Simulated assay, not measured.
Amino acid sequence: MSDVIHAATAPEPVGAYPHARRVGNLLFLSGIGPRDPATNAIPGNEVYADGRVRKYDIEAQARAVFANVRAVLEASNARWEDLVDVTVYLTDMARDFKAYNAVWAEHFPDAGTAPCRTTLGITALPTPIAIELKCIAVVKE
C-alpha cells in the first residue's frame, strides 16, 4: 500500500501526520516549515517577551525550509532532483516573494530542471513561520 517516512534529521511534525508517505514511486511530503530540528527554533525570528513575532527573515526561513525538505527526501531515499511539484505558502506575498524567489533560484538555478511550483499568499500558518512547502517527488526504484 504505502510506506510512512519519519526523518530523524527534520523537525517533528506539529500534528499527527508523517513527514512523508511513499505510494509506488511517488513521494508525498507533508507541509514542511523552517523550524530547526535540534532546537525547534525558527531561524530569523525575533520575538517579543510574550512570544509574538517582532520581525522575521524570509531568506533565513527559506534556506531552513529547503534544508528540512532535503532531510525528508534523504530519509525517503530520494534526492533534491527528484522533486517534481512544490506548493509554497507565504504569509506575506507582497513583502517576501522577491526574496524567496531569489533563494529558490539559488537552489534551482535551471528552470528547465526545476520542479513545477505554485506559490500562494495566505494569512497564517499553524506556528509563527512565514513559509511552508508541500512537495511531491518521483522516487527511482
Rank of each mutant, 00 (worst) to 15 (best):
H19D: 13
N25I: 04
T91S: 11
K140G: 15
G31D: 14
P126Y: 06
D96W: 01
L73Q: 11
A94H: 12
A137C: 08
K134E: 14
E81V: 05
A10V: 00
Y17T: 04
A7D: 07
R35A: 14
A41W: 00
E141K: 13
A99P: 05
E59H: 04
Y100I: 01
A130T: 05
D57C: 06
A16W: 03
I42E: 11
D85F: 15
G51M: 09
A41F: 07
V139Q: 04
A41L: 14
C135A: 15
W104N: 02
V138D: 00
G15I: 03
E46T: 13
T39S: 15
A64C: 10
T118H: 05
K98V: 05
V103W: 00
V14W: 11
V72E: 02
P34M: 05
E141H: 13
P37E: 14
P18V: 08
V65A: 08
M1Y: 01
Y17M: 07
R21N: 02
D85H: 11
Y100T: 02
A16D: 15
A38K: 14
S30Y: 03
P11C: 09
W80L: 06
A78F: 03
G33S: 04
V65L: 08
R54C: 00
F28R: 05
G44Y: 03
F108P: 04
V4R: 12
P13C: 09
A137S: 02
G112K: 15
V23M: 11
V14A: 03
T113P: 00
A105P: 00
G15P: 02
V103F: 01
L26D: 08
E46S: 06
Y56P: 01
R117I: 12
R117M: 13
A16N: 12
K98Y: 02
W80Y: 04
T127A: 09
N45I: 13
P13M: 07
E12V: 10
A67Q: 13
E106K: 10
L120H: 11
L26I: 04
R21W: 02
D57L: 13
E59W: 00
E46L: 12
F97I: 04
K140V: 01
Y89C: 03
I131R: 10
I5M: 06
G112A: 12
P18Y: 04
V84C: 08
Y17I: 03
N40Y: 00
T113N: 12
T39M: 12
A111D: 11
L90S: 09
A124C: 02
L125W: 07
Y89P: 01
P109G: 04
S76T: 04
M1H: 09
H19Y: 09
V72L: 06
I5G: 08
K140T: 15
I5E: 10
L120Y: 11
D57N: 14
T118V: 11
R35Q: 14
W104H: 03
R21P: 00
V84R: 12
A64E: 04
D36M: 12
I5S: 10
G121Q: 01
F108Q: 10
